[in-house]
Amino acid sequence: MKAVFKREFRAYFQSPLAYVAIGAFFFVAALLYTIGNLLIGDGDFVNILSNLTFALIAIVPILTMRIMSDDRKNGTEVLLVTSPTTTAEVVIGKYLAALCVFLIMVALSTIFPMITMFYGTPSISAIISCYVGFILLGASYIAIGVFASSLTENQIVSALITLVFFVFMFVIDALVAVISGWFGTVLSWLSLLSRFSPFSLSVLSLTSIFYYLSFIAVFLFITIVSSDRRRWKSN
């Protein structure tokens, strides 16, 4: 697992991928902060962070699009599979690498509330709570991205699948509101965004934390199983 993690993490910074993703995220964050906080003299960073979840929709697919598909395209999958390292270790190692790049992004964005702190006293607990939610949401998005990437050997297709998933996540709450019965209930289980709201209201909801962690675990599990299954079927 460590070997895969180290390789993938380095690979992010050897290609423009990590820089593009981090740069784009930082740019959007700075833009929102300038418009939403600085220019109107508002100190509410929680609001900015909540809006930044939209940026993840574009950035996470960039981060995860090649993570599984590249090995299939380049034939390096053979090395991973025929070594004594298990598929679970490979998938988790790759996931953690993407997660770490994401955490770097998040860490860089903390500069904005820090700037605010020079000039006022924003509620630190509210900001931390919102960050916890933001990280969990992002981590769940990445799990979806890793799964999508394991479905294809084409990066673009992988990114598009991820994007479709995310768009679906956005309409899900609207759907839940109109669809009643068991289907509506099942859909509501998938709603990542509705679990984010407590965090933005500075509530560290254990249910939500547990929900996100299970969501990630389930998606990584599906990724592991589907990667193995695919080799069983085709090739």
Binding site: K6, N74, V78, P84
Partner: peptide, 30 residues
Amino acid sequence: KKMIGYLPEIPPLYMDMTVKEYLFFAAELK
């Protein structure tokens, strides 16, 4: 898998690594 070393038809190489990095990575995988 621990007992077998495999060179597939297309060598499974990571183009973005140096030879040494790659071999250390493979050693850790093994």
